[in-house]
Design a protein around this nucleic acid. Sequence first.
RNA 1: GGGCGAUUAGCUCAGUCGGUUAGAGCGCCGCUCUGAUAAGGCGGAGGUCCCUGGUUCGAGUCCAGGAUCGCCCA
Length: 1043
Amino acid sequence: MPPFEPVPPKPDHVALEHATLERWERERTFETLRDRNRGNEPFSFIDGPITANNPMGVHHGWGRTLKDIWQRYAAMRGCDLLYQNGFDCQGLWVEVGVEKELGLNSKREIEAYGLGRFSRACRDRVAHFSRGLTAQSKRLGQWMDWERSYYTMTDPNISYIWGFLKLCNERGWLYKGHRSMPWCPRCGTSLSQHELIDSYKDLTHPSLHVRLPLAGRDREYLVVWTTTPWTLPANVAAAVRPDAEYVRVQTPAGVAIVAASRLEPSPVRGEVLGTVRGSELVGLTYTAPFDDLPAQQGFENRVVAWDDVSMDEGTGIVHIAPGCGEEDFELGKREGLEPLTPVDEAGAFFGEYGWLHGHVTAEAAQMIVDDLGQRGRLVADGEITHRYPVCWRCGTELIYRLVDEWFIGCDEIRDPMIQAAREVEWTPPQYAKRMEDWLRNMGDWCISRKRYWGLPLPFYLCEDGHMTVVGSKAELLERAVRGTEGLEELHRPWIDDVVIGCAQCAGDARRVADVGDAWLDAGIVPFSTLGWHNEASVEAGYAEGAGVGVTVADLPDHAHWEKWYPADWVSEMREQIRLWFYSMLFMGVTLDGRSPYRRVLTYEKVNDETGRPMHKSWGNAIWFEDAIEEMGADVMRWMYATQPPAQNLNFGYGRANEVKRRLLTLWNTYAFFVTYAGINDFRPDAATLVSGPGPEGMQPLDRWVVARTQGLVRECRAALDTYDSPRLVRAFEAHVDDLSNWYVRLSRSRFWKSEDAASTRAAHATLWYALVQAIRCVAPVMPFLADEMWQNLVRGACADAEPSVHLAGYPEPTDGLDDEGLVASLESVRSVVELGRRARSEANLKLRQPLAEVIVATDHADRRRQVGEHVDLIGAELGVKAVRLATSAEEFAQTEVVPLLKLLGPKHGRDLAMIRGLLREGQFELRGDAVLVGDWTLEPGEFELRSRAREGFAVTDGDGFVVALDTEITPELRLEGVVRDLIRQIQDMRKDAGLAITDRIRLTYPDRDGDVTRAFTEHRDWIAAETLAVSVEPGAELTIAKA
RNA sequence: GGGCGAUUAGCUCAGUCGGUUAGAGCGCCGCUCUGAUAAGGCGGAGGUCCCUGGUUCGAGUCCAGGAUCGCCCA
């Protein structure tokens, strides 16, 4: 029985991955790993929840790969890990998804559908997509405790957030604000600061210049500019900049007033009658654009002062509607202006707006424009295309609305958060500053949403207006006076039936209707999932409420939290700085005073292969499902790992093919090994993975590979320790290149023609060692291919081998196997060989034509010695009979003086340029150990001597070597060349005939005068040995036949 | 308007402490090796290292200013 299974010429990544997944499942590989590491030193990774609202995209694959790489690395080092995956379950994402699913298009329709059914549909959607995401993640090779994923919709998660909110209230941070907020009329909710980002679109709107006739003046009016006609009915004031200069302009319709600097760009034309300071306008009153509406009665519209009036757009006079804009509202508060709220939750005008009643903002716009036009109130109307915010979920244009929202004030927590963030190690490092900037600028956290499927805010108000903040589910049940019978879970509508006793008076208190920002859900995770203040752990205890039936996650106890908090490492995409990293930090610093994570790795965006964002409608999107079944998980993971995470990743099939080709080199080396190990019945010894392959039969090249392998192990460890996967990839690819294009190439005959059994064994043992250590090094990145190779190379061949590479531990360098001298020597040899090949190429002498001699010259004693130790390698590689070493290359090269600039620069300063010029021209003189150049003397140690080829030789130079070939081809050499051509030709014939490597053949050759016949008669044994010919007979043509 | 980052070959990007002729991969052209390799190797074409100024014996690298792009915040 051969120890190794034969392998196909190319790996079928997809097929072997499916087989590997089945094996892991069958053999419980992951469970074995966990069991083995349980109780060891922890590596705490906390997973940021992925929204369970869509299937996984290739951009998710990046993050999940990074997470998996470092979890696998930690596990191979023996660390205990949590392996808890998380799903984000609540909030607008899911609600909008369900609305689409059910064909609902407004809050009214949701309420008509029934909140109970709606919540169930939301939960079911989460359950559905979390199952899909789990399956996709498994396919990618991610190892997690999938059964015990956390879900932010569970009662314990909600209960923990309540505790946080209660604490915020106790500290006096919690307040209800009456503010102008960006509002989505379709979703019927306001959006908070972090939801506004990245959601601007270029939109075309009316651009109106509106007349505001001044009271008590004859045909004199202000001109204001607006792009939101629907806000005009709510106009209460016009703002001017007090220090700015305004002009009075005679127009056919009367005297117009605009800012002097804005006259030119405005549509106002006419003779300038005079100027007036803004401050002089303040206090004037005017007729509002819609003065007749009921809402406009009972106050005067007046001109107010505002330093922030823009002189970059508009007329320098700003229409102010405090109920329709953030800045307007602030100004209105200061000036005591009436904040009119013209539209309801759905963006429809209220009854006090007369003929506009019931119309939504978008359709009212044209009605308003028409009406103003008819009444002669428009100076001009046109259109403008500008950046305007839209709802990030549904794309609806946002409006500003005055609403009551709940906020957490952050003045007190800001500095502690900044301090805590400074303790965090950010990769890439510049994001430390980004987080700090965000924290410095953060406004109070708006935590309420006027929606349904979300964290129910535990704020209870009694009739006297006392507020009770309930801090946990247990507290709720304790305080409840009725309504708990139907409380299936802590969600609307069931929670809304619960009435509690007010904490201050004895009255009934009811919950405010609002739900919470989803970032509360995610931010609490380091507390809720780790059992922060649980007295005892409860198996599957986390799965309470909406989590029943979707997870069996445990509810651990406080000791567990102590062990795993804070996280050693978290990794998410860059946007999470202002989202999850922020909310986690906020809650962590509030509850515990520390950052919940020590180290962060962020990554950027995934684009298509040409660098454009992937977009469904552009047709350039690649679906995860397609990618993984076409490229394979390892190939995708390799792409992700190769990419520096601080730069966008250009993802595509072309890139994947590049990766496949690189991995093919590894596979080829592996296949080569397996082929010959089978033929030669090589049996590996697993103990050598620690000790290194034994000394018997070892050649210098073997020791070199072993030494290089130590370097690989060190480099890979260093790369992973610094969260630098591209560095690992570079090291691995260099190693594979060394193996394939240097070691195997030069050692081929030791595998093929076994004259020396010990040498053959050593070659096998060395290659096996180098391959196995290499796949252990990359196992975290490429878990499938690595384990596949492990099965064949180790598990099937060694007694007592670990059943999986992932159980084999991360390799450690073995002291004593390093050999810097040898590595340097082979480096020199490699240079010489490359130079020799170049010389051959330049002289048009192909490698198959043997030559008599190569002369290697160097003035460098160390290099000469290094090369001298390996003349056999050089001879073989360059196809020459002899390698001659020369001290000086004078016969075919000239000496060159290379100045050492670091030393000479400071010494000679400006003269150095002159010295270098002279040296380049060869105007120098060697005098003993020194060099005379012009008026200067270079002392020993200040320069190096090198050789440069003279004209007319087949010579190349570089790295301090000159390599010259003896180009004379004697008849004997020529015949040998013919032999090698023939061998090559016969090998091709064997291949074409489909013969196995070990098949023997019968050869006939053309029996005529000439080189070919002479080659066969004079080198019969050589040819026979190389081509495995059992007979070599003269005949008519060159033919082979299986023996 | 402020902050962070980037700008190097046709494309994607490396480039260490400032040092001698600035590299890799892909693509293109030519050559070549090979019973592991649809691979690999060698050579060639292809460069205003964004611009300007400064520091220095010496700048892709450091400093200042500017331009353009990306991201974040106003």
